[in-house]
Each structure stands twice: as C-alpha cells, then as structure tokens.
Computed example of a mutant assay.
Amino acid sequence: MEPDLPPPLEGADTYVLDAESAMEMARLIRLDQMTTQGMGGHLAGLQPLPEGAQVLDIACGPGCWALDLAFLHPDMEVVGIDISRTMIAYANARAYSQGNNNVSFEVMDVTKPLDFADHSFDLVNGRLLSSFLRRDAWSLLLQECQRILRPGGILRITETDHGGITSSPAFDQLNTFLFRAMHTMGYGFAPNGVTLGITPMLERIFRQANYSHLQRQAHAVNFSRDAEAWTDFYRNTEIVFLQALPMLQKVDMASKEELDVLYHTMLSEMQQEAFCGMWYLLTVWGTTPV
C-alpha cells in the first residue's frame, strides 16, 4: 500500500532540484550513505551525547542518517524534518517497517520558525544545506537552532563548496555553470560564484550566532574510476545534471545543444580508466551557551 503523503506546505520551496522526485530521492539515499562513510560515521568527532539524547536532523531527505542513528542508539529519540512530502512519507514508512519506535519524521520548512519548543534537543544535525538555503537565511537558521537546543547543546553542520575536483573538463565546466547559476539565485558566499564558498564562512556564521567551543573536521571522498565510491558518485552526478540542465538553459549559461553535449561528454570522461575525482567536505560544530 502506498503511504499517505503529508499535506504540502504553503510558500515556495527553495530546493534547487525537484524535492518530490522519486529519482531525486534515490540519489539522496546513495549520497547520504556515501557522505556518512566519508565522514567516518554518524557521530564522528562528537563527544558522547547524554543518555536518552534528543536529536534533530534538519533537511533529512529520505531520513537515512536519522534512521541509522536511531537503530544504532535505541536509547536516543531522533526526529527528522524536511520540506518534501515524498521524502517524509518514505522515511516514516521505513521507520514503521523496521520497527524503529524511537525515530519519527515531519514535514517542516527549515527556512521558517520550527515547530518545536525551546530547549528541545541535545543535538541538531544538518548536511549539505546549501542546496536550498540562500545566503541571507543562514544566520536565521542558526539562531532558530539555538532556540530549540538545550543549554550546552550541539549544532553540527556539514557542507561542501563544490561538486568535486576531477580530471574531467566537462565535469568542471558543468559544475561552474551550476554554481554560477546558484550564485545569481542567492545561494553561496563565493564572490564570483565559481564555487559555493560556504566552508570558509561556517565558523564565522557560528560565532555570529553566539555558538562557542567551535570545532571542525575535514573529509575527502575519493570517487576516481578505481575507487569504491565511483559508482555512487557517478550516479549522483548523472541525476543532478539531468535535473539541472533545464535550469542552466533557462538562466542562459549555454544553449540546450551545448549543455547536452557537455553532459554526455562528462559521463563519458567519468567512465574512462584514467578518471580521477575527489569530493571535499567540512564539518563544523559548536555548543549553545550554558
């Protein structure tokens, strides 16, 4: 039986791709697993959380991180929120089928005030928020996270500036087009829009929002042709640009014909034995005032 979809939210969805697409959901499931592995685990780097910790995963997508965390730590209560009705319906169905009683999911727009009481959580986790969070919304989100965190609670954000650094000229060109387009739409902090430019800003944004005891940890995912992550990253890239090409054409990055040629050339270059690629991420976390 198909799970009932939650009611849609009012207002515009700022997610760059199609948040209700089954293809996008499949991509995010793969990307979530690859990101967690690249980070060294679900809570890598953090001090042990208190017994019975309350954890929130913002923009949780299909809920993989939250589901895994709840399974690995049955003493925790885990909540995931996302603007996508499709993603939340899938996540709740998985939680039900797996018998995970300590995890739940809700439709919620994290660019607006969150429907949680003050001091509700010990940890708020967010990953790759730049795909929907415009540059003028970052400080408001961190302030809202501080409201719902308990004194001494932890906010942890993981971001990337680029879709990957590779030996493929077509990959590099399409990523440049994508981030320039996003820059004109209000995303990222880079002055020229060639990258997102979020990782250099993270610690400053945390400090401005009055978080303390800041720490950071860098991660690298090798998706070269002979690397374990190549298959998942190839599929991720294939789906991202399949969805993004119409947007790039609309904002006049190139003609439809030019973009199609670049897209297929990129996929061909990524399949070559000599293809090399590395994806870099940065995690920053800090605590609220005690």
Rank of each mutant, 00 (worst) to 15 (best):
P8C: 03
K256C: 12
G193L: 11
P289K: 09
R180I: 11
L267R: 04
L214W: 08
D226W: 08
R180S: 13
T158C: 13
L67W: 09
R127A: 10
G52T: 00
W138Y: 10
H119M: 06
R235Q: 13
T166K: 09
A12F: 04
P169T: 01
P169Q: 05
H219I: 00
V251S: 07
A19T: 01
D109M: 01
Q47I: 00
L282D: 02
Q47T: 07
V107A: 08
G52V: 01
I154C: 13
I154D: 03
D118V: 07
H42D: 15
N125H: 15
F132H: 05
D57L: 10
Y280F: 12
H264K: 08
T283W: 12
W65P: 11
A12P: 04
T176I: 10
S167D: 06
P50V: 03
T195L: 08
D68A: 15
Q98G: 04
S104D: 13
G152L: 05
T283Q: 14
G40C: 07
T158N: 04
T195G: 00
E2Q: 13
E51G: 12
D232T: 07
T265Y: 12
F121Q: 08
N236T: 14
H73T: 09
P8G: 04
P6N: 02
E203W: 01
F116R: 14
Y187T: 00
E159Q: 10
V79P: 01
Q208P: 06
D68Y: 07
E203L: 06
S212V: 02
E10T: 11
G45K: 03
C276S: 10
Q249W: 05
D161V: 03
F177W: 09
T176C: 12
V194D: 12
I198Y: 03
G277W: 07
L242M: 10
I81A: 01
Y187W: 04
A53R: 07
R225F: 09
D13K: 06
E77L: 15
L155P: 00
M185L: 15
D68P: 02
Y96N: 10
